[in-house]
């Protein structure tokens, strides 16, 4: 117990630093992720069940767009999550960078992959919605372009991460890229207000009451929760895999049962 402290965060508040490190220690994170996985998974299944029923059966058709607007129930949650996951991604990277917590890099890496997936889904479903309503699959307007930049940021990070062999260097370089990319988030959100775009303005997150009928809003919000639960499920699985890869020689890994 009289060993000198060897972690690099010694210059900061010691009690805070040690608390963080204990919380972020690989075995405890692995245990927590394992316990949480089924909860998130079942919550996702339940929300998708209720949400899809509401989106496809309960919600009435739109006065302008008929049934084509139903794409909103997958498009908007994917777009929300593409940005929310980016925030987690950047914060997790920063935690790894500042406090030297490796779990931060693992959360960032896993989030980048899922975030890229959601961004792709938002762009693809938006394109499928745009063709019948706007009359074009793709337009270079500010909203669509900034969302494409988001996809490129995620892909750039993943390319950078796979190009650097040393995990610590890769994590730090990636975290810097993630933090710089944060500037894109307000641009995406406000693009429809700052510039003339073909894309419509915000419906739910604007000031005042959402301009969407309650029978459409409820399924939309449930689908939003469903996507969040899906993210958390995949995040837990990804973090566990990342920890195993990183700590394969650690003693706590050897005590794990091979079954699950």
């Amino acid at each position: 117990m009289s060993l000198p402290r060897s972690d690099q965060s010694g210059h900061s508040d010691i009690s805070l630093g040690t608390a963080f490190h204990r919380l972020g220690s690989p075995p405890s994170v692995y245990r927590l992720a394992t316990q949480l996985t089924p909860w998130f998974a079942w919550a996702a299944v339940a929300c998708f069940g209720i949400g899809l029923y509401g989106a496809l059966v309960v919600a009435p058709p739109d006065y302008q767009q008929g049934h084509a607007y139903r794409i909103i129930f997958v498009h908007v949650p994917a777009a929300w999550l593409s940005m929310a996951v980016y925030v987690v991604f950047a914060i997790a990277g920063a935690v790894g960078l500042i406090w030297h917590i490796k779990v931060g890099f693992i959360v960032a890496r896993t989030s980048a992959l899922i975030g890229a997936t959601y961004t792709f889904l938002a762009l693809a479903t938006g394109s499928i919605w745009g063709k019948p309503m706007w009359g074009a699959w793709w337009v270079w307007d500010a909203r669509l372009t900034s969302e494409l930049v988001l996809l490129l940021l995620y892909l750039g990070y993943l390319a950078l991460d796979s190009a650097i062999d040393d995990r610590r260097t890769a994590g730090r370089a990636g975290a810097v890229l993630a933090l710089v990319g944060l500037v894109n988030l307000p641009i995406i959100h406000y693009s429809v207000e700052w510039w003339n775009t073909l894309h419509q303005g915000a419906t739910v997150t604007k000031l005042g009451a959402p301009s969407i009928h309650i029978d459409m809003l409820v399924p939309l919000l449930i689908m939003g929760i469903a996507f969040k639960m899906h993210y958390l499920t995949v995040l837990m699985l990804g973090v566990r895999a990342g920890l195993l890869k990183q700590e394969k020689r650690a003693s706590w890994v050897k005590t794990l049962s091979p079954a699950r």
């Binding site: 309503m133 419509q200 459409m216």
Partner: peptide, 15 residues
């Protein structure tokens, strides 16, 4: 080329 823009309001026809 002609593209249609729609607003951010969604409601049933009856409403």
């Amino acid at each position: 080329q002609v593209l249609a823009k729609h607003d951010e309001t969604y409601m049933p026809p009856e409403v």
